[in-house]
Design a protein around this nucleic acid. Sequence first.
DNA 1: CCTGGAGTTGTCCTA
DNA 2: TTAGGACAACTCCAG
Length: 450
Amino acid sequence: MPVYILDETCPNHFKLGSASKWWLQQSLEKLNVSLEEKLHIQKGDPLALLIDWVKQHKITQVVWNRCYEPWQISRDTKIKQVLIDLGIEVKSFNGHLLWEPWQVLKKDETPYRVFTPYYRKGCLSKPAPRIPTPKPDNLSIQYVDEQNHGLATLNLMPSINWYQQMAEQWQPGEQGAADRLAEFVSQKVNQYKAKRDFPDLEATSGLGAHLHFGEISVHQVWYSAIDACNGNTEDPGLDCFLSELGWREFSHYLLYHFPTIPKENFSPKFSHFPWRKDDQALKAWQQGNTGIPMVDAGMRQLWQTGTMHNRVRMLVGSFLVKNLLIDWRSGERWFWDCLLDADLAANSASWQWVAGTGADAAPYFRIFNPVTQGEKFDKSGDYVRSYCPELSDLPDKYIHAPWDAPQEILNQAKVVLGENYPKPIVDLKASRQRALDALQQNKALSQSEP
DNA sequence: CCTGGAGTTGTCCTA
DNA sequence: TTAGGACAACTCCAG
């Protein structure tokens, strides 16, 4: 009797974002079909619902794959205990991570805080991850009609159809995940290291959301990639891709061992950092109207497609936190709502990384210059042009810094700064200096504290 | 127990 | 034009 429960006891902060809801709707539709339309879907309190079902249907065994978010761990621990007390056999499995977070520790038994030793020494020296097992030949699925309140009762779909472009680009569900993996390992993994940083290429796996929703396991991804390279883990593309899976793992590891990272700075030095409150600037950033083409292209890609290329995520994050001096948590919340692959562990750890507040984080002086980044990683301007069409007639030379273009060039390209494309909301050089000063000051202050 | 090298993702200035 | 160094501070671990 397969069940899906949308947990209504979930604390508000961790409830699904809008984009995630759309994905989940599609995903559950597909899962239901593959289970002969016998998936029981309900919302409510998982503990109460499970007790109900167990009693009504004389169920003797309950099984699930483990969830690793702190609030889920305490919930599931309690459910497990209550069910055991009722005489039920309960089994939980690892379907989500290559290595259990509690099994990877330093010699002194404390958790790693730096990625490379965590991954190379902590993970890779452990026994290899388990090999995926195929679907059982015979599944006998029980279906109890009156219990199935159905997908519609979850109210996942938004009232406005803003997801059209997402629907064209993504295929949620197990088949979509398998297709994407097959395409990636057969055509892209070898070139991954060379091409993954260019946002106008589709050189990344795009598996984030599929992994997050459990439509494919990280074990399948790990071994398919290795198999596609004939087991040659020296292959630079493969090595680079596996280490990215390592970063996914590290995020979950950090969240497990440091459960406050979704809300609090990992590094206490930042606890009194003077973040600026600037709703106008935050809104301009969210809507892709900062006047900085790479930033705007990224933020518009996020809004329109539910995703953003990794290179651009770093750069828009750096811009919000450093050039605008806005608290990383504002960025984290926006990504949480907009990203189809929104994941508490990855989102928290990555925002703290880019802000410099996190584990093994970017040093404070590393401030991305979105113009330089554009010239390096979007040389042709194709990426900017696809999301900022009002700039498309600008020559490559000025596509990343239209404010530097001579008036004549702007006229020819029909770009009127301040009218059909914004003037930059901050001066890049001055705001960079302001960030360096603020961070310098914070360092001095936090050192003088007891 | 101590020490020294290395550590995802950058930028700017100077020689 | 381009390469190298400065920009911190801390974690991890091999020797």
